[in-house]
Design a protein around this nucleic acid. Structure first.
Lengths: 200, 200, 200, 200
DNA sequence: TCATAAACGAGACGGTACGTCTCGTCTTGTG
DNA sequence: CACAAGACGAGACGTACCGTCTCGTTTATGA
């Protein structure tokens, strides 16, 4: 019955598996944005994806794992590595990128969900850590170029500077609830850039 | 059974209510440290506290609220407001305090649980935000004194500086999983102090 | 909500537990008669009983156990121990009783279900065996009295005679599908009575 | 994989269909003896037979039908029609045959499975009844010869006598759980023979 | 001191969601 | 074209935990 549908819409049933994967992740991601981790149910994800619950469980043994993958779909590619010519400029672009990611209501809910999912499963925070290690490594060049330009003293830790930039944004998201906007991104980038270029 | 115990140990049952409150919060706090928010069940809290489940629900309508109170008990008092005479010194003490709070395995689990609990309940993140607003306000004087001393330019935002200090620590706790130790506290304090005292 | 209902209809919630037990067993028994063991679902039993699924599972850990108890409710009381004065008469009454129990469409379905359930679960056939041991013991006096009257030689095994009487009826029910009626009861009783009273 | 095996062992792929049929039925029969109807899964039967699940479903639309056929494989031919010269002797041989069939652990499990399977499917108990009708007809001559010999009064119903002989054995198997052994076969044959030869 | 309100113990229940199992169908590719 | 391989739909199973409700008992306090 439900399978008949696929016959209608898709001439190329060759990729059923992939189609299922995609539609499930999309449904999960949407629900995540709408209701957050806690009130997301696997059953509803399945229904939205036009797929049966068991099919979801076949691929993602756990709600947490499903959410983990769904949540990363969005943030996976969008790490822009700016090269404006100055550390301040680069940091501002980076900060603006993070703000764009987590600043919206939906983005915030989705981002919070990753943390909740990781809290639920020991395996997941390993994955989360790996994801962030990758992310940090990908953005480190911004600082390394600043070192090459002489803006930042040699021996400075790129990671530390990126953490100082990103940390406060997530602090607002997860703990203080203060507004996350471009102005904030701007100011935190200024503070960090100043600290990095003019150390004690 | 549980009632028999109280009879044995305490001749002056005048404070039963308070005793119950305390033992439940303690049990909750312990469990939080041991297994985290997700795998903490109200039933087990009750059992550990030597109290019946219904009694717990009578006071804390929700698991999230119970956890919220239990988790805050620990961090409530320990906000040391240092006054070492220099911004760097003060920030280092502050950072060290946060590290001490969330750096241990138990403390990390407990801290993560607050976030998870807040994610589960709209009411709770309001409380969490209020708690953090209070905390920020309490630590702001550190920056204000630095401004008075002329270390930091007038017009600087105390909150921003505190956020820059604390954010990276929580980033490590919740997202990157990098080690949280005194050295890290030291270095992040240096970076932020430099940025605050020598702005662009 | 559903619990408010109890307030309306029943002043004495004290007997709730028993009421639940009864209504669930009744619902299960009905469904057993209607659709048989295989197509009986715990969920539907619960719904019919006006009770939630989890409540059913609280008392009967397994569908098989639920069915076992439900099925036995019916046959529990209906073991008439006749005393007509002759073995033949007694056996005819006994056989007629069994026929009445399993001869109807509903009774047949219910009875078959017991066997199916027992075949599915090691625990259950223990229970089933115990039930039958009790039943055999309860009907043995019929033969013992015949021995006392001198109708049946001393040393005859009461169980064997009862088994010879009852076995063929269940054979028809479970295997051959031949009609189970009073005439059959009559004839099998005659055969067994003859064999018991005039051994080789 | 499975195909490779067959290719190796058998030069004559013409009989593949038959080979598949046989190995599936054998696997099913084995599993039946080992775990019984309920815990037998089509998937496992297929795996044991070195065949894919779909192949099984192609031939046996239903688990019940597969089991029905598999179970009968064993009892299909082995109905020995004795002719010892006396009713008692013949009945004892017959009873011993049944005991041999269902008395072992594996045989019991297999036999019980037939009943369970028949309960699951309306079509199956029709087949089961037919099988038993055939079986009864095949064994009726034992009684008919006794009538010709004058051992048993003319007009006696052969079926009834066979049922009286076989029923108690299945009663023990399916309901009471009492031991099924040669001694029991002997005694039940005696009782029935007596009843048949010396009616009231 | 004793009555009475408040809090508690005990335990069943409704409800939601989880994750599992197995049956039987359907798709896709391969010999 | 039949089959291997395996994903899928369907639906039930049994579990865990949440939060609610009732009833009977203990504890604290005020008349």
């Amino acid at each position: 019955m439900a399978q008949a549908k696929t016959r209608v819409g898709e001439q190329r049933p060759g990729g059923r598996a992939e189609r299922v994967r995609t539609s499930v992740l999309e449904a999960a991601s949407d629900l995540l944005s709408e209701v957050g981790y806690d009130r997301l149910s696997v059953d509803e994800v399945a229904e939205r994806a036009g797929v049966h619950k068991t099919t979801v469980y076949r691929r993602w043994p756990t709600k947490a794992e499903l959410v983990a993958e769904a949540a990363q779909v969005h943030s996976d590619e969008h790490i822009p590595i700016p090269d404006t010519g100055s550390l301040l400029g680069d940091l501002q672009v980076l900060a603006a990128g993070v703000v764009a990611e987590v600043g919206s209501v939906a983005g915030a809910r989705r981002s919070r969900s990753i943390v909740a999912a990781a809290s639920s499963s020991g395996d997941l925070d390993v994955e989360l850590h790996a994801f962030w290690a990758h992310r940090m490594a990908a953005t480190a060049p911004v600082v390394e170029r600043a070192i090459e330009r002489g803006e930042v003293p040699a021996g400075s830790d790129p990671n530390l500077i990126i953490e100082a930039l990103v940390g406060p944004i997530w602090l607002r998201l997860l703990l203080t609830g203060e507004p996350i906007d471009k102005a904030f991104a701007h100011r935190i980038a200024e503070l960090v850039a100043a600290g990095a270029t003019r150390p004690a």
